[in-house]
Design a protein around this nucleic acid. Sequence first.
DNA 1: CCAGAAATTAGAACAGATTACAATAAGTGT
DNA 2: ACACTTATTGTAATCTGTTCTAATTTCTGG
Lengths: 237, 237
Amino acid sequence: MRTPHATIEAPPTPRLTGTSAPSTAGTVTTERAPGVHSEPSTDVRTKSQHQRRKRIVQAAAALASRGGVEAMQMRTVAERAGVALGTLYRYFPSKMDLVVAVVSEEIELLETSIERRPPAAATPAGRAVDVLMRATRGLMREPELADALIRSLIMTEVETPFGDRMAALLIRVAGGAGTDGPTEEQLALAGALASVWVHELLEMLRGRRTHEQVQHRIEIAADRLFSDFRSPSSTAN
Amino acid sequence: MRTPHATIEAPPTPRLTGTSAPSTAGTVTTERAPGVHSEPSTDVRTKSQHQRRKRIVQAAAALASRGGVEAMQMRTVAERAGVALGTLYRYFPSKMDLVVAVVSEEIELLETSIERRPPAAATPAGRAVDVLMRATRGLMREPELADALIRSLIMTEVETPFGDRMAALLIRVAGGAGTDGPTEEQLALAGALASVWVHELLEMLRGRRTHEQVQHRIEIAADRLFSDFRSPSSTAN
DNA sequence: CCAGAAATTAGAACAGATTACAATAAGTGT
DNA sequence: ACACTTATTGTAATCTGTTCTAATTTCTGG
């Protein structure tokens, strides 16, 4: 038998030598290595490891853009990235971890895009819808990839900053968080909207919704969920 | 290469001989066999097929209750159900189909339970929360199973009556549908609540939410989403 | 009860993810 | 430069879902 998942010691290096860990955002295998102090964050042993990781994620994304997860086979990824299969597994303990890494990049792209051109709608709900639909369009440009990513994210044991991250983003654009961060309730509502979005996205990927239907449904949900979010004025803190 | 999934002809028998199909609710392989007339519903060739199917689903559920999907291996299921691997695959073209079948049973149980003891809360939202939390408790009795099922459902290519079914149930208990069925908007709202529930359930399974937190979040969402559902009175049709 | 159609079976075969391992290359501290 | 720890590489092996096949059994309609 074999360990199904989780509870693996630490990523690549993190032994007591305090050397490093190639992984940056991925490799979130559910358990922290006990006794191992902090994490020098993006602390990678060498630059070549950074690049190696990058090559891997890149190769993975490229492959996934084509035939989806199916096409993104570990052997192929390793080959394309120019690393040995074992190495690939050292960086990403499972295919899911790799997928998560790919997604993380996508989200970062979205966040950047939002910063560059913030949603302009008048109401908090409107702005939230804006963001979600922008994300939707972005993802739907590569349906195979989107499908693979979304599903994998939902499936995985791996820590998924996804929902929380999207929720935080929504609160931000809706203009919700006071100086001491968002309310419990706001988090709940934003989280709810995020999960509705994910669900609609999945339905769209399954071909059971058109872009319009998705937008409509998200609008309906957003209107209700974000109705008493702070209006665009009253920036009291 | 091999066909990844979907678009398989018809379940077990459905050729032109109009014989039958062992499968009852599962086996939703994304495509109907073209040209094949209606479906005599629960029309199974023989009773033994009914039983065989039952044994299979039963075995699958039992296994999943233990180690989750991981433990529910096709070979093992076949063995436990006392059928050949090939037969298992004839009944359920893929593991997902089998999982769907297992879930269907669970949902049926819930529906029955709801009928037997309808939610008593005063508001539509309250009743919806009642139902969802009851479902949650039921599922959480077998965490491994629940986890396996929920995830698999989200992952699969297979038709998932899940969301829609739960949405329908919610509308029913909330007292929403007029004679000509629920509104588009009601469907959207109930669907939204259902997806929030699924998400929270997942988070709970991941150990990131307590039962209370889930309830709280669902209440918050339900209050907003079901606020203008028909009040408990005015049963005009 | 017989002939043909469909189902079931046992078991081999295949595919892709994951693991194991021995040999070699790199990086580090002194 | 040396000894030592950690990474990387190749490659074989393992595990599990899925497919295939030939032989056998079960049905169904006369």
